[in-house]
Computed example of a mutant assay.
Amino acid sequence: MEEVKRYSECSEYELKQEIGKLHEQARKAEQMGMVNEFAVLERKAAMAKAYLLNPDDFKPGEIYGIEGDPGAYFEIKYLNGVFAWGHRLRNGEEEEALPISLLKELKK
């Protein structure tokens, strides 16, 4: 049986391989109309991508766009590993965590 590695333990090469595999599985799930499976696989790929990014590039107090949610903005309160904790600007003050790979810098 294959030992499961955490994304935090994977090399950059292993993460990129995993992301490719997840995207392929997601594509197949979408073609087969398996919407829930597609969403889970896309979220897993976003998690793996987060480990390829440097959390120091994301600053508390800054506002970012959210990948896949046009017109939605997220203000970072603090970072914990590869998760940005904060709130969406249109939804009020409910705190949530997003993988940093889902955040995109706003054009200045």
Rank of each mutant, 00 (worst) to 15 (best):
K28W: 14
L89R: 05
G92P: 12
D69K: 10
I100T: 08
K16P: 13
G71L: 04
M47F: 04
E93H: 05
L89N: 07
L15P: 11
K21H: 13
E24M: 15
F58K: 01
R88Y: 11
R27Y: 15
E30F: 15
M1Y: 07
W85E: 07
M1D: 09
E96V: 14
I63A: 07
A26R: 07
A45G: 01
N54Q: 02
Q31S: 15
L103P: 09
V35I: 13
V4C: 02
L15H: 03
C10A: 06
Y7T: 01
A72G: 12
Y78R: 10
L41V: 11
A26G: 11
A48Y: 00
H87Q: 03
G68M: 06
I19D: 09
F83C: 03
Q31I: 13
L102M: 13
Q17N: 09
N91F: 11
L53P: 07
E75R: 15
L53Y: 00
C10N: 00
E94S: 11
R88F: 10
P99V: 09
I63N: 06
G20M: 04
M1G: 14
M47L: 10
K59N: 03
E37I: 07
K21F: 13
Y64G: 10
M32C: 14
N36D: 15
M34L: 15
G33V: 09
E95N: 07
G61S: 04
L103E: 02
S8C: 05
A39N: 12
E2H: 04
V35Q: 13
R6E: 01
Y73L: 14
Y73G: 13
G81C: 03
L103T: 03
G20I: 05
E12L: 05
L41P: 14
M1W: 06
A29E: 11
P60N: 00
L41T: 08
A29R: 09
A72S: 15
Y7G: 02
L41H: 05
E62P: 03
S101C: 08
A48V: 01
E3Y: 06
K28V: 15
V82L: 03
E94A: 09
P99H: 05
Y73D: 12
E67V: 13
Y73E: 15
L52K: 00
E18A: 11
C10M: 11
A29G: 14
S11M: 09
L79V: 05
N91S: 10
D57R: 01
L102I: 04
L22H: 11
C10D: 02
G86V: 02
P55L: 00
E2N: 05
D57L: 02
G33W: 05
E30M: 14
L98R: 05
Y51K: 00
D56E: 08
L22E: 14
K28P: 15
Y64D: 03
I100E: 08
E37G: 07
E30L: 13
A45M: 01
K16T: 08
V4Q: 01
